[in-house]
Amino acid sequence: MVSNEAEGIGLSVQNLQIGATPCNCNARAAKGIGYDTPQAQLQAAANYMANRDKEREKVVQREVTEQLDKLDDRWLKEIRADLGGQELIENPNLLRNRVSQQAALYSVAFGLKPKDAISAAIKNTRSHYTVIHGMALDVNDRRIPPDFEELAKDHLNEVYKKYGKELGISSARDLYLVPSGEMSDVFIIMAKGRLIGPIGALGVPGEETVLTPEKLDAARERIRSTQIKNATDPVQKAIKRTQEPAGSFNPAEDDKLR
């Protein structure tokens, strides 16, 4: 949310753009580089509007692109360190476009040099994404639980068990998620395999094609039940052994309990 004062003079920074591309020039974007007060947001929005010039914006975007090219994949390594560690990100262009747009925005709105604007954009991008099965996913402004990644992977594994063969995929990692819309808590399930695209377009029933908050709750319960079962099974086996008739000792079974 921007300040009422900013909205009052028509500077709804959530709708500001670089060229024709919508950019996230709002409180969250500003906060990423320290502009987290209503006064600073207002000043940033005012600066952006005052400095808007199509030719200048083209120059800024070109400078940002050139700086990103100089960084090679170092910018991605910075992001990847917080998004799954060493896991390969299979859709880096999504992140690069986001960093590029944010950096150009910061450069125009806040007067940052391209290098500094890129550093701020990387920091901001890291806080907005997670990685599910190698695919970066924008989770900003979405009400997701802290254990979202674990729950999402569990649900995708269940979908794979049911429809993997039909979809022609070899593992649950061939399923990933994309947002269903702005600020939505629902995610569309996609396939990476031979048949690429939303699984709803590949023959999977409609209710099975999305990940919802209710399905996350079901995944949490499924994980909890499995954990309880894994914890109690050895105890139940030990109890059963004490009830067996004398002379029925099984060394192999005893080794399993150790």
Score class of each variant (00 low, 15 high):
57 E>A: 12
207 E>A: 08
70 K>M: 07
22 P>S: 09
251 P>H: 01
205 P>V: 04
257 L>P: 01
50 A>N: 13
173 R>W: 12
132 I>L: 08
90 E>Y: 02
23 C>E: 04
219 A>M: 11
234 P>A: 03
223 I>C: 04
45 A>Q: 10
202 L>W: 01
198 P>A: 08
122 I>P: 00
219 A>R: 10
210 V>E: 14
18 I>F: 08
28 R>G: 03
197 G>K: 00
169 I>D: 04
103 A>I: 01
76 L>M: 02
45 A>Y: 08
121 A>H: 01
11 L>D: 07
201 A>L: 12
224 R>C: 05
49 M>F: 14
157 N>K: 15
8 G>H: 06
21 T>G: 12
15 N>A: 14
131 V>N: 04
125 T>Q: 05
69 D>H: 13
114 P>T: 13
198 P>G: 05
255 D>G: 11
145 P>T: 00
41 Q>C: 11
177 L>G: 06
143 R>N: 14
29 A>K: 08
189 I>M: 04
152 A>R: 03
230 N>H: 15
218 A>R: 03
50 A>V: 08
225 S>G: 14
126 R>Y: 04
252 A>Q: 12
14 Q>D: 13
106 Y>Q: 02
186 V>A: 12
240 K>V: 07
122 I>T: 00
129 Y>P: 01
183 M>W: 14
63 E>M: 09
121 A>S: 03
149 E>S: 14
108 V>R: 07
177 L>V: 06
88 L>I: 14
108 V>I: 09
240 K>L: 09
213 P>D: 02
20 A>E: 15
134 G>F: 01
216 L>A: 10
53 D>A: 13
167 L>R: 03
197 G>L: 00
105 L>N: 07
48 Y>Q: 13
154 D>P: 11
52 R>I: 14
73 D>C: 03
122 I>M: 01
108 V>A: 02
71 L>P: 04
